[in-house]
Amino acid sequence: MTQQYTTLSEIPLSKSSVEHASFSYWYKLFQKHIPTSRIISPLPDEFIQYLEQDGIKLPVEKNSSSYYTDKIQRNEDNEYSDWDNSDDEENTRKYKQPIDPLTHFPELHQRIKDIIDEIGPVTPKLNWSAPRDATWILPNNNMKCNEVNEIYLLLNASNYIAYDLEHAFDDCIDKDQITPTKPSYELVLRQWFNINPALEFRIFVKNQRVIGVSQRDLNYYDYLEALSDTFKDTIDEFIEDEVILLYPEQDFVIDLYIPRPFKKAFIIDINTFSRSTDPLMFSWNELVTMDLDIDNERDYELRLVKRNNVARFASKEHSENQVPKDVVDASLDPNVIKELASKWKELLSQQEADTDSDSDSAEE
């Protein structure tokens, strides 16, 4: 009889479990099943401070031209860029200057550029998370980065990255034994390739057994249901023959990409079996209480968005992290901030005027 659980807290999450979910750990185990990647480690402290600081400061290099550098340069050259900056000057005196990539970590900056020159467009991530929640900040609305400034934008705008930096070990049962020093962070740059989001699946493994599989992209694809058995055969074979033999954890969550003709799987990510990992079409209560008796012949479920449940999963992924495009532009252009502030004051004034008018009408 295998170990049974009734709550997620009963499944021990240790520091080593989190470390084993770090990209550099499982990359060396399964490299042949992972798209071309480059790992930069260790990262300078200044880079981590750059990601943690408020605001987004992008570098402007001499003799370089891009959408971002040109926009920043126009802002710097604009005679109105210092509007009402008394508070900014006071903050500058009170706090140290913002970290700038060209000044504080030029070697890392150049290394990132060299990797892009070597393998082409890339997608970034830190040890555990990719900034999937921040794709709204780029014009292409995905994680394809053709230049270094796009990488900086994604990493700075992502709540997932912020979580990695501040809370990676929060749920560990041995967190009190973890030294207060920062973990060794790494920047992963994976070669970009077009992925069909319909063919990515999240597999939940407990006690080294697959207990459930969820469609990763929560949109309806009419052809998936007919392929369920094919996907499960490929998943079962890959997990049993490749992953469980090498990965040391009993409980984990793994994301696989299964392209046509659906006979081969690629590893996209490995996560801890914990509440910090999105259960997608399951709930954590379901996952932790599933009966895993070896003699139980019940097959696990591969859950798909179907025509009759599409409304339940209709909300756009990461939409809670998105902001209007005007706000994104404002983060790069002080003049846009001024314009937004002016419009906001006008709206407030108009609202007050309307309120006063309504009050006068009521008195009459």
Rank of each mutant, 00 (worst) to 15 (best):
K325G: 05
E363T: 06
D358Y: 00
T92K: 09
L189R: 04
F252L: 15
W192F: 15
P124L: 02
E10Q: 11
E61K: 03
N146T: 09
F282E: 05
F204K: 07
I119D: 10
P35V: 05
T36K: 07
L280S: 10
D217F: 04
N335D: 07
L332Y: 15
D88Q: 07
K206G: 05
D117E: 13
E286D: 11
S214D: 11
V305K: 02
L340K: 06
Y67S: 11
S349P: 00
D354N: 12
S37W: 11
A226P: 08
N335A: 09
P180Y: 02
F273N: 01
N127F: 12
D117C: 13
L199I: 11
L246G: 04
V327S: 08
L154C: 07
D233V: 11
S274F: 06
S81H: 02
E249K: 13
D84V: 01
L155C: 01
T355F: 13
D356F: 12
F273Y: 15
N142I: 08
Y221C: 05
K345V: 11
L302T: 03
R260M: 11
Q110M: 00
D174M: 10
Q53P: 05
E240K: 08
L155W: 01
I195N: 06
K345L: 10
I268G: 09
R298F: 12
I203F: 04
T69A: 15
L224H: 12
D222G: 15
P121I: 12
N142M: 05
Y257I: 03
E225W: 13
D117R: 14
S359R: 11
L13R: 13
R275M: 09
